[in-house]
Design a protein around this nucleic acid. Structure first.
Lengths: 100, 100
DNA sequence: TTTACAAATGCAAATATATCAATATTTAGG
DNA sequence: CCTAAATATTGATATATTTGCATTTGTAAA
């Protein structure tokens, strides 16, 4: 049986882990490319960002694991897309706060 | 002279460092307490969160350094408050995405 | 100027992350 | 079944983060 503090602390942990997943230059770049419900494969992202395939897959894995992205196998490819459209808000908010 | 890619990459770095500052359970908790323009001292936050004074100061320093918070000395105390009200959006967004 | 409270800093140990190269797994097509 | 393409995983190394303790700095009041 969990008490209030534990539940609160769990929610904070969850929120932090989701945010930590996003808080990386390459992963923010990935999110920007996926805004508006777009779906992209690992190879497409790896070419768009100009980083290693394995590094790309690793970043996508983190984003999926922490509930930021979903993925769908389509033949040999796997497409990734935003789990919650509203997550774009975070990227937008950052843009406004850092562009002053 | 910076080229487009460098500028873009700089913006991503800046956004990521701001988000990384927020992406910690205690620091999210701090932000929640500061929503709506509230101002709190280091001691108040350290007591609210139940963590060490030095740890609290450290977290506040990170948030200030990365442009999330501002601070103001008032006698022996230092008050901290949100630099941009819209940053509450990020916390709200997380709440919606993690409470499903 | 001495005292006491508030906040910030330096340090060290434990833990977590990021990256790339190499390798493994999955799937489609011959 | 065999091969090639697309992804995922593993291992190793380098780097960064978190925390509390001890100490220092800043400020107000006696």
């Amino acid at each position: 049986m969990m008490n209030i503090q534990e539940i609160e602390s769990d929610k904070l942990e969850m929120a932090a882990s989701m945010l930590k997943a996003i808080a990386h230059p390459m992963r923010i770049a990935i999110l920007k490319h996926l805004e508006g419900g777009k779906k992209l494969t690992v190879t497409e992202i790896h070419e768009l960002l100009g980083i290693e395939q394995s590094t790309t897959s690793h970043h996508l894995g983190i984003l999926k694991d922490k509930g930021v992205l979903c993925s769908k196998r389509e033949g040999k490819n796997t497409s990734y897309y935003l789990k919650h459209d509203i997550l774009s808000q975070i990227v937008d908010c950052l843009q406004r706060c850092t562009c002053e």
